[in-house]
Amino acid sequence: MVKACLLVKTTPVKGERVLEKVKKIKGVKKAFLAYGRADVVILVDTEKYEEVLNITSKVHEIDGVRSTETLIEAW
């Protein structure tokens, strides 16, 4: 199992919509709106490394996502 934590910055109004879309992505274990440096925090749990990468790219496609920072499990 490969875990990762994605920190997502969204345009101000879009946070809720982004969260709804993110929750539908396969491999997303938990996602929530957050106070602080990131607007949405996504906790990912997948079989393979590559799956984390395509989750990141799926998140990028969501309208309203400005940037993401991925912290991927070290091994």
Partner: peptide
């Protein structure tokens, strides 16, 4: 779990 990137450990 330990992570790569700007931090060393992520805790949920």
């Amino acid at each position: 779990y330990p992570v790569l990137g700007r931090y060393d450990v992520v805790v949920h």
